[in-house]
Design a protein around this nucleic acid. Sequence first.
DNA 1: CGGCACATTGACGTGCATCAAACCGTGTGG
DNA 2: CCACACGGTTTGATGCACGTCAATGTGCCG
Lengths: 268, 268
Amino acid sequence: MNSNHYALSRFLDRLLRHSTLSSDERKAILSLPGHASQVQARYDVVSPGKVVGHACLIVKGLAGRFDQMTDGRRQTTALHIPGDMCDLHSVVQPRPSWSITALTTTTILHVPHSNLRDIVHIYPGIGLAFWRDTAAAAAILSKWLGNFGRKDAQSRVAHLFCEMAVRMEAANLGTRTSYELAMTQEQLSDATGMTAVHVNRTLQMLRATGTLSFAHGLVEVYDWEGLKRLADFTEDYLLMSADSSRPYHSSSGQGRDYADLAVASEQQ
Amino acid sequence: MNSNHYALSRFLDRLLRHSTLSSDERKAILSLPGHASQVQARYDVVSPGKVVGHACLIVKGLAGRFDQMTDGRRQTTALHIPGDMCDLHSVVQPRPSWSITALTTTTILHVPHSNLRDIVHIYPGIGLAFWRDTAAAAAILSKWLGNFGRKDAQSRVAHLFCEMAVRMEAANLGTRTSYELAMTQEQLSDATGMTAVHVNRTLQMLRATGTLSFAHGLVEVYDWEGLKRLADFTEDYLLMSADSSRPYHSSSGQGRDYADLAVASEQQ
DNA sequence: CGGCACATTGACGTGCATCAAACCGTGTGG
DNA sequence: CCACACGGTTTGATGCACGTCAATGTGCCG
């Protein structure tokens, strides 16, 4: 049990939401090394095109992944909250095509790729869990793409608040009707593909209809069901609700469920 | 060497574009079992919410991943060409939140998860390659998201044609200035988050400026550089150009490059 | 020949971007 | 303790890129 235990245990919690790990595997994750550092808002944690040698675990704060156009416009493609290993896939793809930037003052734990690769080789179950984590992140991306392509401003903003609500609640960082999201309206506009001005007007609409309020980085949802309806939101894609995180154990009757194998190869 | 050799070898080619595999690992992939089937255009290969027991390798044709809104609107979130194992991640996440639908008459090779899991356990290097493949797909998604959030119709359409050009060329299915993309304008509109009508007008613009033509499922690029500029396209994110697929071997001087390990653990 | 899927065109409306100014809270230095 | 700068929010005026609706054209197939 090292001094990074707090952060690693949040990360482990995240993995356990979708994957089953043996106690050895859990111990291996909790004993990962890493050095912490603080990054001020607006500063890059990871820069595009540069090869990195470690993955970044968010300990505290908020970070975003950004796709940058050559003309300077930018688009947030992911938001990372404490407990997220925000570039776990860098283990297999150490040269990103995007940047990761701190949105608020953020504490990062840098975990060397070499150690991550080591435990993946020793515990194939961890490898599957990491792979699954990458797939879960991709599922979120898909959903965002659907929102961007086919929904209007209100639905997009509403969907973002729904998603973050569920993620924050699952990470024990608030409840789905009240949680801290320390973003400016401009950052919100980067994350929704809109203008800061239009985000502002949209938030006013949501406020006026009694759906939610967002001020000083605090989200207060007054009408969760209404918000969900507006956003056309279902949480199954996040792979963390009770009924979807482990659908495997309930299904089928055959001797050994194939999906069971997928989830944990070395169940203790 | 089984009867599926042709399709599997295309799949292997795809993997080798970004990962290094030993000859044993290559053989293992080429000996994967699977049964083929044909799917008519508009029919689902995979349906959302339903647990699947196999991954789908596109042998011939074109398939798309769709995010469906409850009101019936839909958004294409990925396009899959021959050689793509379009839901490789289903191995670790067998219940998708999207559908995969054939865009043209498509031949699919169904490869059981159990066999994929077996070779991953025997050859960890294959596991890494699969994980990397999922990460590459996610990089494409990120790029799409940037396009949707921050670019206008012309740039979006142009970017799609650029991306498919490079992918088709890499897969030996044409050249970047002339390749077959058997999509209707409506399907194109699903993939770009636009309306079929506006896709039509946009294509006319591209035609009028002498940039490219798209008719009867054939893309002819007249001005590749101009198209790239319009799309703000760089191909590095696809992980398949010469300079980005293996940046590892050229870099650094230290005894053992960490990234080398990432790429292949069992280089023969 | 009729039917059907797809492409094209036109008229019209609107959701959002754009530009620009004002407002507001907070920290800072004179 | 006020002046001021600064990041963030809010408001208004204006324009356009795109969606929407609806009709017509076009090639293919039975």
